[in-house]
């Protein structure tokens, strides 16, 4: 087993709010090898986006990050501002959720890509433009040469996201962070962009962190899956392990909310309640108030991430006591 490219341990983020500090991340640990895809699943507010931003230290000024983030041997949290700018885009790059607003409306696509290439590699404008053209072709933008001259508003959502991907790939990052890159797109375009990302990831051998709340997306491209809830990873493991034999009641609930054609005529089982207020988390397991299996012990202390197999970890106090998970589609239809 090679040494992981990304190593995150005990990552904590605290934001100073109007009513005192709020802890967004309560010690997140994971690692990722080169060339692998880790999908981070979770609802809105579970801290998945914050985790990704913390990796690049793209957090609001009111937030403080602690813990340890090692990317390719670089201690990201110890970098000074200037060094940080050098690794952003070249070592770690990010694809944003909303290509419509994450591209500057006043510059052409080509300019924005070329500018980044120039900033990192000191290339001439001509070279940078040539590279931008190559990149647009790489992300399969039709008539790429002309699209270089286009402003973001002149492109469709899918093309814009492709341009965004080209921008992220412009300086050959070793780690690509994709924060719900397909959420803002039409269903048909989503698939195209997803397939493109998978293809590029394999071709370029990037370690990829893929944030999504869509289990289907995770199935499609992930090697490993981590499920987040209220600022903690509650379950992680290989894709088959987490999606096939989920151990945590929340992860199971998440999988049960996937709609497939098998479910026609059956009732969907939602997870009761709503995500907890981050400023007032319950003691012990944060999911306990919504959990059908919660017992007194669950509220006593935050459960540790316990090993279910070599790679499969679950943060549940009743791990092993609950009935083994059965594939979700059958579970619902019976």
């Amino acid at each position: 087993m090679s040494k992981p490219l990304v190593q995150v341990s005990d990552l904590r983020v605290v934001v100073r709010g109007a009513d005192g500090p709020v802890t967004i991340l309560h010690g997140v640990d994971f690692s990722l090898e080169a060339g692998k895809v880790l999908c981070v699943l979770g609802e809105s507010g579970s801290g998945k986006s914050m985790t990704m931003r913390a990796l690049m230290r793209l957090v609001p000024r009111s937030a403080t990050i602690s813990g340890r983030v090692l990317i390719d041997g670089v201690d990201v949290l110890a970098l000074r501002e200037r060094e940080l700018a050098r690794i952003r885009g070249s070592l770690v790059a990010m694809i944003f959720q909303e290509p419509a607003t994450a591209l500057d409306p006043t510059f052409t696509i080509g300019h924005q890509i070329a500018e980044t290439v120039r900033a990192h590699e000191g290339a001439s404008w001509a070279d940078a433009r040539r590279r931008a053209l190559d990149l647009l072709e790489l992300v399969q933008v039709p008539s790429a040469a002309r699209r270089l001259q286009a402003y973001p508003h002149e492109l469709s959502g899918g093309l814009r996201q492709r341009a965004m991907i080209a921008l992220a790939l412009s300086c050959r990052p070793k780690v690509l962070i994709a924060d719900e890159p397909t959420t803002a797109l039409d269903a048909t375009v989503q698939i195209q962009v997803l397939l493109l990302l998978r293809e590029l990831q394999r071709e370029l051998g990037m370690a990829t962190l893929f944030v999504t709340h869509d289990v289907g997306v995770a199935c499609e491209i992930a090697d490993e899956v981590a499920v987040m809830y209220a600022g903690r990873i509650v379950e992680r493991g290989s894709t088959e392990e987490v999606l096939g034999r989920a151990g945590h009641p929340y992860a199971r609930g998440l999988l049960r909310s996937v709609v497939t054609s098998d479910l026609v005529g059956t009732r969907l089982v939602p997870i009761d309640g709503s995500p907890p207020e981050l400023s007032a988390l319950p003691p012990g397991c944060s999911f306990a108030p919504r959990c059908n299996h919660a017992i007194e012990r669950c509220s006593a202390a935050v459960p540790e991430l316990a090993a279910l197999s070599a790679s499969h970890r679950v943060r549940c106090a009743r791990l092993g006591e609950l009935e083994p998970a059965i594939p979700h589609a059958q579970e619902v239809s019976t």
Binding site: M56, L58, R82, A85, R86, I87, R88, G89, S90, A93, M94, F96, E98, T101, A102, L103, D104, P105, T106, F107, E115, T116, A119, H120, M164, L167, A168, S170, C171
Partner: peptide, 26 residues
């Protein structure tokens, strides 16, 4: 606070480049 400013930071743009390029133009 626009995402494209954050995105520019994410590509490693310096403060000067962000102000002179993105902010000024917008």
């Amino acid at each position: 606070t626009q995402p494209y400013v954050e995105a520019a930071v994410a590509t490693g743009a310096s403060a000067t480049r962000i102000v002179v390029g993105h902010v000024l133009k917008n």
